[in-house]
Every structure is written in C-alpha cells, then in structure tokens.
C-alpha cells in the first residue's frame, strides 16, 4: 500500500512514456530535433550527477563528450567496428578520461577545480587539432554508414534513430534516479552540502567524487558516441569550450540537482535558438533576454523553482 518508494520514479516514467508517444506523432523536423535533445540530455544528466548532486563544478565536460564521440567515430572509420561496439567504446572512453582527469583534478576544489578541468579540456581540444591527420582536425569527418547500423536497424532513418536515442535516455534517467535514491546518492549530496562533515562521518571525499566523476564521464562518453553514430559527424567543435559551458547552462536552466532538469534545460535551450532564429535575425538577443527572464523568474532553474512552490515530487 505504501507507494512512497515508487514516487520518485513517477515523473521520469511519465516523461519516458510521453516521449515514446511523441516518437509516433512528431513531424519529421521535430522528430529529429527530439532525438538530438534526448542524446544531449544524457550528456546533461552526466553533468547533473557531478554538478547538480555532488557540487563538482566542472568546465571540462567537453573532454568526456569528445572522448566518446571520437572513440566511437574513429573505431568505426579506422577499425570498422559495429555501432554497438562503438557505443561501448565511447562509454569506456568517457569514463576512462574522466578517471584520469579526476585523479589529478580532484586534488583541487571549487574554482580551482573549474580551471583545472577547463585546462585539461582545452589541452584535449588542441590535441585533436594537433593530430589533425588522424582526427580530421577542425573539419572533422563523416562517420561511415556501415557503422550506423545497430541490430539490423538503419540508424540513419528516423524511427531507429529516435528509438536508440530514447533507449539511451531511458537507461540514463532511470540510472540517474537509482543513483541519487541509493545510499551513495545521499553521500553525494552530503559532499555537495558539506564535504568536511561527510568526511567526519567516515566517507572519503576523494573516492566518492572520483566515482561520481567517472559515472559522469560514462554518461558524457556514451552521449558523445551516440551523437556521432546517430547524426553521422565527428568534429573538434564538440570538444571545444562551448560544449563544456552548455551542459552547465542546461542544468542550471532546467534545475540543477533535479531528475528532469537536464532534459528540460536542453529542450528549452534548443527551441529558444530554433524558434528565435525563425522570427528574427537578431536571435542571439532573444536568447539572451530569455535567459535573463528565466533566471529572474526562477533563479534555481525552472524545476528548482517549481519544486520550491509545489513540492518535491517533480524532482
């Protein structure tokens, strides 16, 4: 009779159901957009786990996204692997790079952590350019069509693409919910709220944060790999500083430390740019003003603001 343990799962499950229905009714353009949004939302959730729940303000997540993107793309084009294996490689690349970054960067905290992650990501970006003969440099490369087939489904067609994006998104959002509901999730929040106190209670902050960063890297890496496989292009712009700032913006906009916030943030940002560029040539202005209005109305992010008003079931 006690529905309490189910409650946190209601909102994500409802969203997944809605998105599944959307997959059948959306017109072609928005169908493709939504597939992109879902993949980027996985990336945003990875960021949310690190920043929203654990307080790790990283400016280097483009490195993890890029690691997954390039691992998958290069494995397909140079190694001729299948899409499934490429996704797995992207996942591992994101997690592995996050582990290596974390071992060094987590010796710092706060703003220093920001800058160290930023620097590592910048070095990663420049390495992509430096080894341009291999990576295609800033131009990037087109992912071979042979690597864009999964289990007989052609991922260059709308249905399977949406299906895989939604599948990943489902795993990611349920995984995120499970993590933050588990005892480990409480340790994460404790790290965010008061790292010293959590340490006194016997939790090792370094170890906890490292695990969190690796999980975050796994999310980012698989999102990068999926982006390359689903949309067919790998390029250095995805590893540039912009893709470190975007997940921060998405998470803050949607509501950091909320389950649905990352998705909402990506969704709003995407359509802000898309719609405003349809109606005015000065669309940067519209986006800027909209961000100001949103943040003035809901400084804790949209879901953060709603949660404050209407209770916690949303989060």
């Amino acid at each position: 009779m006690n529905g309490q343990p189910l409650k946190p799962w209601l909102a994500p499950l409802a969203l997944i159901g809605l998105l599944a229905v959307m997959g059948f009714v959306l017109p072609a353009y928005h169908h493709n957009n939504m597939a992109r949004i879902l993949v980027l939302a996985v990336f945003a959730m990875g960021y949310n786990i690190a920043f929203g729940y654990t307080g790790l303000l990283s400016l280097g997540h483009a490195l993890f996204f890029g690691a997954g993107l390039y691992a998958a793309g290069l494995a397909i084009n140079q190694g001729g692997v299948t899409a499934g294996l490429a996704l797995g490689l992207g996942l591992l690349a994101g997690g592995g790079v996050a582990l290596a970054t974390g071992v060094l960067a987590l010796r710092t905290a706060g703003v220093s952590f920001m800058i160290v992650t930023l620097m590592f990501a910048q070095a990663g970006y420049l390495l992509l350019l430096y080894f341009g003969a291999f990576t295609g440099g800033d131009e990037g490369f087109v992912v071979a069509r042979t690597g864009r087939v999964l289990g007989g489904f052609d991922l260059t067609t709308d249905g399977p693409r949406y299906g895989l994006a939604l599948g990943l998104f489902t795993l990611a959002i349920l995984g995120q919910t499970a993590i933050v509901r588990a005892p480990f999730g409480r340790v994460m929040v404790a790290m965010r709220e008061n790292s010293a106190r959590a340490q006194m209670l016997g939790f090792d902050p370094f170890r906890t944060k490292l695990i969190v960063l690796v999980i975050s890297g796994l999310y980012s890496g698989v999102a990068g790999a999926a982006y390359g496989i689903l949309f067919g292009y790998v390029g250095a712009s995805f590893a540039a500083i912009q893709y470190s700032i975007l997940p921060l913006l998405w998470v803050l906009l949607g509501g950091s430390g909320t389950v649905l916030g990352p998705f909402l943030g990506v969704f709003i940002m995407f359509y802000l740019i898309d719609l405003s560029s349809s109606y005015t040539s000065a669309h940067l202005m519209v986006v800027g003003v909209a961000l100001l209005v949103l943040v003035l109305f809901a400084p804790r992010g949209i879901l953060g603001g709603l949660r404050k008003r209407w209770g916690t079931w949303l989060a």
Partner: peptide, 11 residues
C-alpha cells in the same frame, strides 16, 4: 566553412 559542410552533408 568546411566543418559546417562536413557536419551537414550526412543529414
């Protein structure tokens, strides 16, 4: 710009 072309051509 080449990266835009290469990024868009698959679509």
């Amino acid at each position: 710009f080449s990266h835009v072309v290469i990024g868009s051509a698959p679509r």
